[in-house]
Each structure stands twice: as C-alpha cells, then as structure tokens.
Design a protein around this nucleic acid. Structure first.
Length: 450
RNA sequence: GUGGGUGUAGCUCAGUUGGUUAGAGCGUCGGAUUGUGGUUCCGAAUGUCGAGGGUUCGAGUCCCUUCAUCCACCCCA
C-alpha cells in the first residue's frame, strides 16, 4: 500500500476550505474587472533563464527547478510579475498601452513553511504597464481598498512608501552604494526596535552612527499623512530626488482619498522597504489591524524597468498582489469564515419516495428560478435529512409529504432561524415558493458574511 | 537553509520513575422518537500511539533516522 500523503507546504482543499477560496477569487476577479483590468494566463513552467534572470540569490534558492524530458532547464514560476515581464516583452506589439491585466494563479516557492506561508499558494495580481502616470499609482491604492472592502474587511491599513524618498536621503548622505544593506536592516525596524536596527546598520551596512540615525529618523516619522509629509520634507533638506518622491506621495494620498479610500486607512511609512529590489517608486503593504503578525496580505509597487531583461523597449509598470492563501489563513484565525460545506443554499428532503418525480420536478423549477438546489438522495428518516441539511450549512430545507402534495402546499424551513413557512406550490406555478425562499435567503445572507 | 517545539481515535488532548487487553471529552453511528434538525437519555464502533530502525525480558514512554506541522532567524503573499 502507498501511504496517501502530500508534500511539505502543499495542501488538499476540502469543500469547507474551497468554498470561501473560490468566493474570494470571484470577488477579486469582479473587483479587477470593474477597474478595466483584463485577465491573462501564463504557463506554470518557464525556461529557467527567464525566471532566474532578474532573481536575487534568495529567489534562486527558492526556485523549483529541474530538467524536463527534452533536456531543457526549466523552473516553476515563483511569482506572477516576472512572467508578466516576459509576457509583455513578447506580446507588447499586439497590446495597447497602458496595458492593464489581472492574473490569478498558483506560484511555487521552495522555502520553509509557517502559518500562512506555503510552498504552493495563489496570488491575485493586478498590474498596469506602459505608463508612469501618478494616476496608475493612485489606482493601485484605490483597487486595494476596493478589493479588501469587497471581501468584507474594514479594519486594515495600507502602508505607503516611495523608494525615492529614501534614495534621496541616502544620496544626500552619500550612501547610495549601501542602499540594499540599509533597506535590509530597515525592514527589521518594527521587530527589533530602533537601537538594534541602528547597531545592525552600522555593522552590516558600514555606515556611521550619525548616518544610521538620520535614516532612522526618516523611517520613524509617524502621524497623519500631512504631518509625515512635513517631517519628511524637513529631514530630506531639499534633496531633489527626495522632494520628487515626497511630492508624488502627496499626490497619491490626496488622489486615493478622492478615489474613495478612507484617509485613516492610509499610512505613510518610510520604513517599509520590500525585499524585492525591482521596485523603484511607490511601495505599498496592506496589514490587517486585527492580525498584523500574519504579515502583508497585499503588497506591490512601481517598477520602472522590469522588462529590461527581455526587451529594449522601456516598459514601466505598477501593480500589487493579493496573497489569497495568506488572507484565507488570516480570515480563518479571525473566525471570519463561514463553516459551510455546500455551495447550494436549498435542500429538498426526499420525504416520501412515492413522490420522487415531484421532487425532481420541483428541483428543476427552483433551479430555473436561479436557485442552487440539492435533492437528498436517500429516503432516510426526515430527522436525519434535516440534520444533514443543517450541519452541511444549507440555508433552506423544503419539506413536502403526501399531505402537502394533496393540498398544494410545501414547508419552507429556515434552517438558520429554525422557523417554518408554509407556501403554496404547483409545478406550473413555482413563483410563490421561489419568492419565499429568496426572502429567507436575503435574511440568511445578512447573518452570514465572511 | 539554520535552530527549537509538537506528532496518541474524525477533533481537542490525558497517559504517573519504560510493566499485562491504550483512555477522556467532543464528534460519528444505532436506539428512545415508523411526519420534522442543533436539547436530553441509553447503547455501540473507532487507533498498525506519524513512519522506519535501535536499546530492553518488556517501548506510546528512552536513543537514532525520516516525514509532517508550528515557532524564531532568513525571506516573503
């Protein structure tokens, strides 16, 4: 016998897990499409050189790679952004710019697992390429807010930074060459605190204590966006790069607010750096206020030359990625996921098998009326059937025995509120029953959000 | 990749210094209740103690290896 098992970091999804998962994907799709992003897909496998070209040592280490049966060196994509760069370089002639696409698909990273971190997980990316307009930057923030709201979340914070602000300061301090090491240290600031971060910067990045202090002062500006912007201007001291970056941040924040994002969800935070070095402008991370420890659930930013490896054409872009599996882990920990094992809301009890064809006819009529309906398949005791319906998460059970069929009425049981409604029903006039069920479902939906 | 915790019934866990046939609660199934579900009562089933090897008269318990999972570092969705 072969032991049935799954690989480390790879998972099976039972209906209870898959139902909210599909719902989340559907919400993401609808949100992206409502902004005009169009779907694309790319292969899971790419030539190794395509994936490792831009990658750092870290991504190289996490890359699943092998030689295929034709002797080609191939790798499994570890994000959707590098495939997009290849895709754009390859097809740009047939695409109009700005090109807006969304891409919902699994990616693979051979790293160590943890809660909300898997080796196979789904990302929901949306990007706009071919424009440097600040409107695209603003739209990214607006989409993130719309997406999180559509999922049913209210308590989240979108942290915004602009690489140019820090670059400007580093330029001002004469530290451009240490940028990567400084960013790496800076990323630890929330975890290890200011003093240790300063120590590490001095040690790992080889800067002076004064320089480290200036960087940290910049990174620790807090308060309202106006306050932070004013403080940044003071510290950057007229450096042109930083000034450009700060002006851009101001435009993004005011634009996002005009675009419907509540101001309190936006927080300027110069300390967020993102490990990926391909970001060149604005950077965002999205944290759940009630579960910040899970990390960012939606991150992105501007990259002004991602396709440079694949084409001479200048292709600036901006976009972000929702971590579907991480978000689902978070929603589960916050107990915001319904425990439902059925995708259909209505179950018809097989109460009296003599009327089997009536039940089939009724199910047909209800489905034609737009309702998801399961007809119970065994003539078990009614109590057992109702128990099955309640535990599987159906909202409505239809009960009709010989008495009901004789009088032209059926019982609509509201399983969530435990009440029964008697409604007239005939196969050639199902309208009243459908209306009754819909009334119950509207109530049920209110009490049954994510 | 490095370091640490955990792994016993479907789930949450107990299992005393190694000692006969491995337990509890919840859940499941059957019945009380042959036309009405989340309560109550009665009854029942269920484990190669993650896997493999070793020490021992004897291992769920000790040792080694391995797999999975969680935590920290690293990195990130």
């Amino acid at each position: 016998m072969i032991t049935p098992r799954t690989l480390k970091g790879f998972r099976d999804y039972l209906p209870e897990a898959m139902i909210p998962r599909e719902r989340l994907m559907q919400t993401a799709r609808e949100t992206f499409r409502s902004f005009g992003f169009a779907p694309i897909d790319t292969p899971a496998l790419e030539y190794l050189e395509v994936l490792s070209g831009k990658g750092s040592d870290e991504t190289d280490r996490q890359l699943y790679r092998f030689t295929d049966n034709g002797g080609r060196d191939v790798g499994m994509r570890f994000d959707l952004t590098v495939p997009l760069a290849r895709f754009a370089a390859q097809h740009i002639a047939q695409l109009q710019t700005p090109f807006k696409r969304y891409h919902i698909a699994p990616v693979w990273r051979g790293e160590n697992t943890q809660a909300g971190r898997y080796r196979e997980f789904v990302q929901c990316d949306f990007d706009t390429i071919g424009t440097e307009s600040v409107l695209a930057d603003i739209e990214m923030v607006v989409v993130i807010n719309a997406l999180m709201s559509a999922i049913g979340l209210e308590r989240f914070t979108i942290r915004i930074n602009n690489r140019q602000v820090l670059s400007g300061l580093l330029e001002h301090l004469g530290l451009e060459s240490h940028t990567v090491a400084i960013l790496r240290s800076l990323d630890k600031l929330p975890k290890i605190g200011r003093e240790k971060t300063a120590e590490e910067m001095v040690q790992a990045a080889g800067v002076t204590a004064e320089q480290a202090d200036a960087v940290l002062e910049l990174a620790q500006c807090t308060g309202s966006t106006d306050e932070v912007l004013a403080a940044l201007e003071r510290i950057a001291d007229g450096n042109p790069t930083a000034a450009t970056g700060i002006a851009r941040l101001r435009e993004i924040v005011t634009g996002a607010i005009a675009g419907g994002v509540p101001a309190e969800r936006l927080q300027l935070d110069v300390s967020i750096a993102r490990g990926l070095d391909y970001y060149t402008g604005v950077i965002v991370e999205t944290f759940l206020d009630d579960l910040p420890s899970i990390g960012s659930v939606c991150s992105g930013g501007r990259y002004d030359n991602l396709a440079g490896l694949f084409t001479k054409q200048h292709l600036p872009g901006i976009g972000a990625s929702l971590g579907l599996d991480r978000l689902l882990t978070a929603l589960q920990q916050l107990e915001l996921l319904p425990q439902v094992a059925t995708p259909a809301p209505v179950m018809i009890a097989l109460f009296d098998e003599q009327h089997r064809n009536d039940y089939l006819q009724m199910a047909y009529q209800l489905r034609r009326g737009g309702l998801g309906v399961e007809l119970y398949s065994e003539p078990k005791k009614l109590g057992a059937q109702l128990k099955y319906a309640a535990e599987k998460g159906f909202d409505v059970a239809i009960v009709a025995g010989s008495d009901e069929w004789a009088t032209g009425k059926v019982q609509v049981k509201d399983l969530k509120r435990k009440i029964a409604i008697t409604t007239a029903y005939r196969h050639d006039a199902p309208g009243e029953l459908i209306a009754t069920i819909n009334r119950v479902l509207e109530g049920a939906q209110l009490a049954d959000e994510y």
